[in-house]
Write a protein that binds this DNA or RNA. Structure first.
Lengths: 185, 185
DNA sequence: AAATTATATATCACTGTGATATATTTCAAA
DNA sequence: TTTGAAATATATCACAGTGATATATAATTT
């Protein structure tokens, strides 16, 4: 019927690593999985409440003075089972919507020089991303003694995905620019 | 505030090529841009209505016997201007959510053999995609005399994106499988 | 002292998704 | 031949996801 709720699994994954509030979860996401997954409060809070009802997590309220009291969530055995089960299920095919490709597809009346300029910009952004991924990989390898062996391989694999993706985009831009230049003649 | 409506531009792009009903538009999308853009009726019909109100398209009702009467939409000068304007604007950065990478990130307790098996499956799917993209490219080149020169370059570029993307995934799978095998020892 | 950043939760309006409902024609297989 | 599947055509629902905004206060920086 509707799209399947994947935020649930992102939150279960975080809570399987640490207990924390919605705010803590958001911070964790932003600092670790942000390159391929982003969460926002508008979803975190309602999904946490729903998961509590489903007994996938438990809530305990921490009183603080001044600040709003903190709702600390922890994963339950049932939640862990749900996560493990999801991890083994095949990934649902992602149709995705690429605004970039949509624009290119409809751009026949855009002047060639403007298009070439745009592809050069895309190439530059991809080159910057490549530098960022290399940095993350270095950071991971620098802390390799503190990270679980298995996690290290998996986390480096996700970074590697980004590297291959950026490299592919760069090559694609170069090839497209070349064929656009051939039109101009 | 909310996410920006991109369906609008997809529909304007289609209607810039041909006039037609919601049904026609859906068919066009499924047969041309499906690899990077998918539209569904749940969105096409309300967005068409809204665009009519904004005078980006006009509707004329075609009576048919038996079947529901067909609402044929055509793009207006205002709609064409809106499309042209959007085409020149930079692409909004896509954060995207990759269920695949999310799963890998949380998979430290999944047995290594199971993970390797999963990566082999992903590799196979990417190899199949590569074949499909090659086929589309051949089809395009076979009809190159009927296609506008500029469109041919742009459409082949979008197919090429898919090819580079698949190739990158294949390489990534091979590398990850290799590093997973090294853990097993 | 003032301004900014960090902590913390909640809600709104909107976009996007995929299933389902409804109804008829046309064509092919049993 | 009739049964049924596929194509034509529109509409609607429940839910998922987004990003901005509202509301408060503490700690830190300027």
């Amino acid at each position: 019927m509707a799209k399947k709720n994947k935020t649930k699994y992102a939150l279960l994954g975080v809570l399987n690593t640490m207990s924390g509030s919605g705010y803590d979860i958001k911070k964790f996401c932003d600092s670790s999985i942000r390159y391929f997954w982003n969460e926002n409060y508008g979803h975190i809070y309602p999904v946490l409440q729903k998961m509590e009802e489903e007994e996938l997590v438990t809530k305990h309220v921490e009183q603080t003075d001044g600040r709003p009291s903190k709702n600390v969530y922890s994963i339950t055995a049932k939640g862990r089972a749900e996560l493990d089960n999801w991890l083994l299920m095949p990934v649902e095919p992602e149709h995705g919507r690429s605004e970039l490709l949509l624009k290119i597809f409809w751009s026949k009346n855009v002047p060639v020089e403007v298009l070439i300029e745009k592809f050069m910009q895309i190439k530059e952004v991809s080159e910057e991303m490549l530098v960022q991924y290399a940095q993350i990989e270095n950071d991971l390898k620098a802390h390799k003694d503190e990270i679980d062996k298995m996690n290290l391989v998996l986390w480096i694999s996700t970074v590697n995905y980004g590297k291959h993706d950026s490299e592919a985009k760069i090559k694609w831009c170069e090839e497209t620019i070349k064929s656009l230049e051939e039109i101009e003649d």
